[in-house]
Design a binder for these strands. Structure first.
Lengths: 244, 244
DNA sequence: CGTGCTTATGGTCAGATTTACCTTAATGAC
DNA sequence: GTCATTAAGGTAAATCTGACCATAAGCACG
């Protein structure tokens, strides 16, 4: 960390803190939802925000994110996909002072959501669409963070197998397709989708059983495969969308 | 920023600082190179590291990155592509205390490199390969940061038009291809590469002139186009590689 | 039992794209 | 003028995609 030779100062001054904020997505009822909380403390008390909190002394960033995730959702360890999204550090983004927030993106299947031992008042799932169209304003710069997280998730679906992280195992091809449809916000052709998924080695692994639905033919069940990346990618822009 | 109800503390304690580190890539002589400095201060004094420095009071992260970029390379403003890469915050990554570093990735054409008014001792270009094979050890966790930056750059070449950011305007299709070859570390088929670039609307714009090379047929000259993303992507994995 | 409804799964076919080449063009060196 | 060299453009086979159609396998009726 080289410093400028103009000796302004050796350390940043005043109140400085590092926090993590979480964009936790899941798909329920065919819609993409995000976990939001009602803030119990100032500032923005009573308003809606992303879950998060300060990084503790001696705690790694990833560990802080995983801890907050556990505190907010009761989900332990590695059952959720968790990745760093972006760092937000504009001065003035938090009235308490200079707070640098490292945002994380978490993806998981429909969660039990025990509003576990946190004081974060009510945590609840909210459709992402209701934030995008301005019905649900968010505190701080959290709407920007959410939009960045959404764009990351949409992009990741094209190039990686994380869509399977949204699915409770075992799952059907239709379950997986509904993830894409919910996150991308557009219907896909079931037949073409299945072909691309099946042809990608290691995306899903058949377990040899079927699930009886309420109505319709039983569907084969799968588990997540070992592959992490999709080559070729599953493009949202060019085609693949359903016509019916 | 919800806090845990167990009232450990309202603010992180002890020495905490936020820094930016820069992974600045260019291509010279057909090889991918990164800008490194010899550290003039403790810790790791005299060792090789990525350029960077502390974020100042009231300074946005992007602004800090751009300032450091200017201080290290003398490059002003927007002539370089600059994007946030990742935040690194493991406790113990810096012996001075808890230092969170926001890494940025910068890409640019072969730079003038006036070792402008910085005390950062000698800044110099180093082939990325010499770090990857362990010939040039880096201070802190900078080798990890560099590897992450390299992977980001390689991936960005597939999906975006940033390869053009490596080229001094005007440039030829062959110039552009050499960027891909240097960053991906593999030769490409000139004919197929040209076809994909030309077919992607807004990747490059012909300026109607030609450049006379030392040897061979003159090549048409281009400027950067308006498009930012490549659809379809230019895949490194599947095909496109040269056979000769 | 048979008909109809629904969803899963698999197939088809025209068109686009990709890959691995080959051919021609334009220049300087000799 | 011939040769070496690089740019630029073309081509045929293989592959992939997009838009469908057809069949399969269950359930709910009557």
């Amino acid at each position: 960390m080289a410093m400028s030779n103009t000796v302004h100062r050796r350390r940043p001054p005043t109140s400085l803190a590092v926090a993590v904020d979480l964009v936790i997505f899941t798909v329920r009822g065919g819609r993409l939802q995000v976990l939001l909380i009602e803030r119990g403390n100032m500032p923005y008390r009573g308003e809606t925000a992303l879950p998060g909190g300060f990084v503790r002394d001696g705690e790694a960033l990833d560990a802080a994110a995983r801890r907050e995730l556990r505190e907010e959702t009761g989900v332990v360890g590695d059952s959720l996909h968790l990745e760093q999204l972006h760092a937000y550090g504009d001065p003035g983004r938090d009235p308490r002072g200079r707070i640098i927030s490292i945002a994380y993106l978490a993806l998981g299947p429909d969660l039990p959501m025990p509003q576990a031992g946190t004081d974060a008042s009510a945590a609840h799932w909210t459709p992402v669409s209701s934030i995008l169209d301005g019905q649900t304003p968010l505190a701080f710069d959290h709407e920007k963070i959410l939009r960045d997280g959404l764009e990351r998730a949409r992009s990741q679906l094209e190039h990686t197998t994380i869509a399977a992280a949204f699915c409770k195992e075992p799952f059907t091809i239709a379950d997986l397709r509904q993830i894409y449809e919910a996150v991308w916000g557009a219907p896909l052709d079931p037949s073409n989708f299945r072909r691309k998924v099946m042809k990608t080695q290691g995306f899903v692994m058949p377990i040899g059983e079927r699930r009886l639905p309420d109505v319709g033919r039983p569907a084969a069940l799968f588990r997540r495969g070992l592959a992490a990346t999709l080559t070729p990618p599953l493009t949202r822009s060019g085609g693949m969308s359903a016509s019916r």
